[in-house]
Each structure stands twice: as C-alpha cells, then as structure tokens.
Design a protein around this nucleic acid. Structure first.
Lengths: 214, 214
DNA sequence: GTCTATACCAAGATAGAC
DNA sequence: GTCTATCTTGGTATAGAC
C-alpha cells in the first residue's frame, strides 16, 4: 500500500508543501485514517484539528472545511473503525463457522492493531457514552458488534462476554502503552503475555513505533 | 456520610453562594471527589476546571489556585481512585484468602461503582498512556493492581487476566451508558446481565442518576 | 481561605485568494 | 481543491480584594 503522495514521486507531507490536488473522496479517506491515529492517542477532546491536519499533511482549515466540525470527523473515524472491524469478523464467519471460529475471530481482532488508532479510537468513543452524538454512535456500534458475535457467529452469551472482555483488556493495555514496560518490568511482561498469547510481537512493534514518533 | 456544607445547615453548592471557610485539606478532598465525577464523564481533556468548580460549589480560580494545574488535579483524582480500589481489595484479602476470594474481590470491585467517577476516571487515564505524566501514573497504578492480584491475593496469571478483563468490560459498558438501553434493547439487556451477574441494579441505578443530571 | 475580575493563549471555524 | 490569514470563543491561570 503506497502512500498517496508517492504518485508525485515526492516525500510525504512536507510542512509548507502544497498538497497535490486529489479527488475529494480520496483525500477524505486519507484524513480519516490519519485522524484515527491521533484520536487513538489523545482521545476526542484531547485531539486538535491541527494535529490531524499535520498528520494528514494538509492545512488545519481544510480539515474543518471538509468535515464541518471536529465532532463530525470523529464520527467518521468511529464509523470507519466499526466498518473495518465488522467486516474483518464477517470474513472469518464466512470462512466457516465451527469450533475454530472464536480463535479465528480473536486473531482477526488483534490484527486490527495494525490499523493505527482503530481500536483505540473505538475505546475512546466507548468511554464517552455520555456525549449526545458520540455516545449514541458508540453504543450502537458496540451493540452491533455484540449482535454479530451472538447471532452471526453463534457465540453463547458467555462466549461473547469473554471475547469482549478480553478485547477491552487488550485495548486498555495498548492504550496504557504497557509494552513500554515489557522488558523492564516482570509483571508488565507477564500481563502482556497472558492477555495476548498470540501476536504479542504485534503489540510490541506497535509500541516501538509509538515511542519513536513522540 | 453527610455532605460537608450540611454543617452549616445550608443546601449544597448554591451558585453565587460564598462557601464557608474550611480547612484546606477538607476542601481539597471535596474538590477531588467532585472532580472524579466530572473527569469520569468527560475524561481529562474533555473536563474544564470550571465544571469541576461548579460540581464542588467553589469558584474556578480557586480550583486552579489549590491544585496549580488541571493535570495536577487529575493526578490527584487518579491517586485517590487507586488508593480506594487497592484498599477495598486489601480488605477482602485480609478477610481471608481461599476459594471464595476471587468472587469477593469481584463484588468489591463492582461496589466501587458507588463512588461516582472512580472507575471511569481510571479508565480515562488508562487510555491516555501516551501522556507523559498521566500515562506514567496510570501504568504504575495498573501494575500495582496487577501485583496485588497476583501476589497478595494469590491469583494465577490466568485468573488475574480474567478478572481484569471483566473489569475493563464493566468499565466500558458503564462508560458507554449501556444501561440507557437496558429496557429497550434486548441485546443490551443480555450483555449487561451477562457481564454483571451480581449487582446489576447498581449499574442501573447509577444510569438513572447520570441521565437525570445531564 | 475564597472570591471577582481579567490576562492570555490555544483551538475551531470562517473568509477569501489562488 | 487547497492554502493563508484571521475572527471568535472558551478555558486556564494570575492578580488582587475581602
């Protein structure tokens, strides 16, 4: 997946560099993806539209112009995150139900960590349930995931709970940057290993990236 | 537990009402408790010092004056939340280890929902692990809880994980205000019942309060 | 110890050029 | 479609009175 500005043969997002013109929809997608990363790190209120703009390599007013409000942008990030998650799960279900499904959906979930900020943006949305717009969308999204697990995937109520509980724990530990302590703290080490028996390396690599771009 | 201003025989926190003088430490505690509620609803960045001041019935500059910065205030809320949680767990351990301990600690955890904003403030802190000050404190707190479970309470790694995972799921559903949908949405209903086999009413009552003071 | 008034800054959104 | 310049608001922190 080459970065968009490669089509011009130029490096990404140089500060004052005017961006090449682009179809509105493509640029929109680009900004939403960049926004997911920033919202994942700082949450809805903690993120500025300028941070998003910088991450996407466009000007701050352009972000406002394109999405109207920061809230609208966040809602689009949320929608994209849920869409991606639901289709990843749906793909596993389509690949066959049966005793192996929970494990496969679990792996698919962890793989979503590759999509920078996807799960963390969701998590930030989930803890803002009191917000009129965000809370409504977040609840609906969570319930849609629950429905998919129970109905489409055929999980029992207990299986769905266990799955979601583990997911929330993983999200929390990623949000906590627990991987920062992986080598230096035995408890952190064990905690990560226990919560992520598979794909531990994914979280650790993620942690390195995060540390380097602060 | 009577509210502090009752000692004056007056109703709480009237808008322009100058607050009675009080020992600095008492007022501090009062503000930290009020702040926990607000931070729990809106998170660190989403909360204004003015909201906290209103909730505590003092003036906004007084909050700044007393805590220096919003960050310092949040760190004190975080510290108080962790202290309360750890001593609740410690009390259960002191009451006896053995096969019943996990269940008792689980109940003690859910009881913490009575302390408005306690678990939600923690949750907001956990997803801000990238913040230099908050992240550091949050990681240390989380690991201290993990240590207590593994060492003091004698949980196995798997038990500790299961316990924490369920805790994070409960926090998430509370943050999501899932209880808003309890009566109208069958999936939400089942999801809450499954995650909170005990003390479901506690979350539902909490939900009512939250809805009424928005 | 607590308030009122205010300075100061950061951030979201708008206007208008290109 | 995208930028620069700017208006406006809201929020933190400070000064100073009581």
């Amino acid at each position: 997946m080459s970065s968009v500005s490669d089509q011009q043969g130029k490096p990404d997002a140089q500060p004052g560099d005017p961006q090449p013109r682009m179809k509105s929809g493509d640029r929109r997608e680009l900004i939403v993806v960049a926004a997911a990363g920033v919202f994942g790190d700082f949450g809805y209120f903690g993120t500025t539209t300028d941070q998003v703009a910088k991450a996407a390599g466009v000007s701050q007013p352009y972000v406002s112009r394109m999405f109207g409000t920061k809230e609208q942008l966040f809602l689009e990030v949320l929608a994209r995150s849920l869409r991606t998650l639901l289709s990843a799960f749906t793909a596993e279900i389509a690949a066959g139900t049966g005793p192996g499904l929970p494990a496969r959906i679990g792996l698919a979930y962890v793989e979503l960590l590759r999509d920078r900020g996807l799960l963390l943006s969701l998590m930030h949305a989930f803890v803002l349930g009191g917000d009129p717009a965000i809370g409504t969308a977040a609840r609906a999204g969570f319930l849609e995931v629950y429905r998919l697990l129970r109905v489409d995937a055929g999980f029992s109520a207990g299986e769905a709970r266990d799955f979601l509980a583990n997911g929330m724990l993983i999200n929390t530990m990623v949000g906590l940057r627990m991987s920062d302590e992986f080598e230096t703290n035995d408890l952190a080490n064990e905690c990560l290993r226990t919560a992520l028996p598979e794909k531990l390396d994914l979280v650790l690599n993620l942690g390195k990236e995060q540390r380097s771009d602060r």
